[in-house]
């Protein structure tokens, strides 16, 4: 199985290549991708240099163009596709079927991958994008169990890539407006979720309170580590009970299911985290690389090491295990 690794900067890109990534994925420094964070992502020049470095090491580069085109400004996304193709991207990762139509029409030989943000969660949905736009691979939404994936894999003609490590969307990806409801900025339109520009921390007695826009997302008593106020991982009150209403502040780790994923027909494993620093990327990529090739005796120690890399956070198998629902 291919290991698909994130890079938010040229430095992280090199680290990922050197650490053994089969593929590095990244995006341009604008709203055309879903990690449109300040100080992150690649200029055209940086992407050109990074692709050249990757090619020299036999590593592929995928370019994420996975936000939804703003009406009237489609040219921004079209030019990003043109440039990704011209600079030698091995695949473009696209969510908007308006943009998929552009890729299919103007760059029919370019390898097209369906982004997780497209929410293609079943056989008919995937076949729609394969038939209509020639998609070669689908990144499955994080709402399926491993048996679901195996069943789907038997009935489609394109490859399957899944997220195995890093951040976890609780909601079906590409179908969530929680962030724009609270801040006016959304993953689909702006490439951001719960953006830092709208985050505030405030001391209230002994508690540290985190806010997103006008809303309190969490409250941390003295001594409890204050996590980032991602909306769907906040503490709320539902029917008189206080707690994490949607999901605890966990991250995804399904590396102890890699045999199951392989048997299900998955061809590529993806690491989330283009916003992470290069040291994190290097460590995670090299550990996952070793986990993939390890025998069953040495694998548990590596998986334990990965748990420590999740920043001391709890981890979850998410929807890959049925009981998560």
């Amino acid at each position: 199985m291919e290991l698909i690794c994130p890079a938010g900067t040229p430095a992280s890109f090199r680290e990922a290549v050197d650490a053994g990534a089969d593929v590095v994925y990244c995006g341009f420094r604008d709203e055309t991708n879903a990690r449109n964070f300040p100080g992150l992502n690649f200029t055209r020049k940086e992407l050109e240099q990074s692709i050249a470095y990757a090619q020299s090491k036999g590593t592929q580069t995928y370019v994420a163009l996975n936000t939804f085109m703003r009406a009237g400004d489609e040219i921004v996304w079209y030019e990003a596709v043109d440039d990704a193709v011209r600079l030698g991207a091995d695949a473009v990762i696209v969510a908007d079927f308006g943009l998929m139509a552009y890729v299919a029409e103007y760059h029919p030989r370019q390898r097209l991958h369906v982004s997780v943000q497209a929410s293609a969660s079943n056989v008919d949905a995937i076949n729609f994008l394969v038939d209509a736009f020639g998609a070669k691979r689908v990144v499955l939404p994080r709402i399926l169990t491993i048996p679901d994936i195996a069943r789907i894999a038997r009935q489609i003609t394109c490859e399957i890539e899944v997220f195995v490590f890093g951040g976890l969307c609780v909601m079906a990806e590409g179908r969530c407006s929680l962030s724009s409801y609270a801040t006016g900025k959304s993953p689909n339109m702006n490439g951001v979720c719960s953006p830092a520009s709208h985050v505030r921390y405030r001391q209230d007695g002994n508690d540290l309170v985190s806010e997103l826009g006008d809303y309190t997302i969490n409250r941390f008593p003295d001594g409890e580590a204050a996590g980032y106020p991602t909306l769907c991982k906040g503490r709320f009150e539902v029917a008189g009970q206080y707690g994490y209403a949607f999901e605890d502040p966990v991250s995804l780790d399904v590396m102890d299911h890699i045999d199951g994923l392989r048997e299900a027909g998955v061809c590529a494993l993806k690491i989330e985290g283009r916003q992470r620093g290069k040291a994190y990327v290097a460590e995670v990529v090299s550990t996952l690389r070793r986990t993939l090739s390890a025998d069953s005796r040495s694998r548990p120690a590596l998986i334990h090491r990965l748990k420590l890399l999740s920043e001391g956070q709890q981890t979850t198998s998410g929807a890959y295990e049925k009981r998560w629902r």
Binding site: I143, M171, A172, C176, F246, K322, R325
Partner: peptide, 20 residues
């Protein structure tokens, strides 16, 4: 406004159940 949909049922979980 329908804002989000999930494989997980927060509604059931808030009352001590799971989706299944």
């Amino acid at each position: 406004v329908p804002l989000a949909i999930s494989a997980r049922c927060a509604h059931a979980r808030s009352k001590g159940h799971t989706k299944d």
